[in-house]
Design a protein around this nucleic acid. Structure first.
Lengths: 169, 169
DNA sequence: ATTGGAAAGTCAACAAGGCTGACTTAAAAT
DNA sequence: ATTTTAAGTCAGCCTTGTTGACTTTCCAAT
């Protein structure tokens, strides 16, 4: 790769993207993601839970009855890592694991009443921030935001994101 | 908070934001951040370094001569945590720590030639993805993306983000 | 000039949440 | 009947975050 221009190029594309513009985008992602996770993190600190538990609760809420394997594919962690999280959620009565009726090897995951309550308090906080950000940025910004994020995903993540999109619970 | 409508509200704002729209934004952040960090993570795996080292290299490159305290404020970690990372970078000759000339308690951080080379390979990869995402999303999307991210930051992070903005290296 | 406090660094101990590898059980698929 | 798949578990390791206690250096105010 040619570094003599540090990658800046004003001539070979539809957009004029300077390294400076790209770097601001990178830094915006870094600082914004911190804000994005801040409220749920605050709620969970002091409980025995962390961000990993939040993710599990979110996607079980999103796709009730999902299997462990489905969840592994979405979260992109090892089953040992997920299992530690799920075990504590099940032991604490926030998640229920039901043996599959057609395929008894599978475990189908559901939130209990308590689990749904915690998930809601976490997602309320996160939605409140997202709502405030959307409103501050204005209607036009929302679409651009989602378009850039979607284009930033790996192909497999985008597939998962879109299939969640098409399958609203 | 009233959950009877799960937070959906079509009447008290400029924007019509359903919980579904907000949740898609949340999931977009989750999947996109994974893509955002994927390329540098791949480069660093196998080296003794991780994401924490990447962050330090990025902001030292961004603000050469920054002090340890400045870096702590930006990264929002404890000095013990940062110190472990900085120590390995200094030992390996990627970062240089210079005693301050006016205030000798301070250490001013600079990338060495080797440090700058690694930082460049990391940021080249990250910029390439950001550039591709921007181009795929189109010119209008870029501004919306940045506006929403900026509005999503905590006040202090936004201040830091903007002061980096106003002070291009 | 002394002292108080800030900046930096270090040590020890710990926790969350990733990982690999090896292994079991049960059930489905071939 | 055998192989493969889904789930779960145990042990051990790594990175990166945390607290708390402590030292050294050095500026700045009294």
């Amino acid at each position: 790769m040619d570094h003599s221009q540090s990658g800046t190029n004003h001539s070979d594309s539809l957009l004029f993207l300077t390294d400076e513009q790209l770097r601001k985008g990178i830094e915006a992602m870094f600082f914004a993601y911190r804000g994005f996770t801040a409220d749920p993190d605050r709620i969970l600190e002091g409980m025995d839970y962390g961000r990993a538990h939040h993710r599990a609760l979110h996607f079980i809420h999103r796709s009730p009855g999902t299997t462990v394997n489905n969840l592994l594919a979405i979260l992109n962690v090892t089953k040992q890592s997920l299992n530690r999280v799920l075990r504590s959620l099940i032991e604490d009565g926030l998640v229920e694991s039901r043996v599959g009726r057609t395929d008894k090897r599978e475990r189908h995951l559901h939130l209990t009443t308590n689990g749904a309550a915690l998930e809601r308090s976490l997602s309320d906080a996160q939605r409140a921030r997202m709502r405030a950000a959307y409103r501050a940025a204005g209607p036009g910004a929302v679409q651009g935001f989602r378009q850039v994020l979607e284009a930033m995903m790996d192909a497999e993540a985008r597939r998962q994101y879109q299939s969640l999109k098409e399958n609203p619970s």
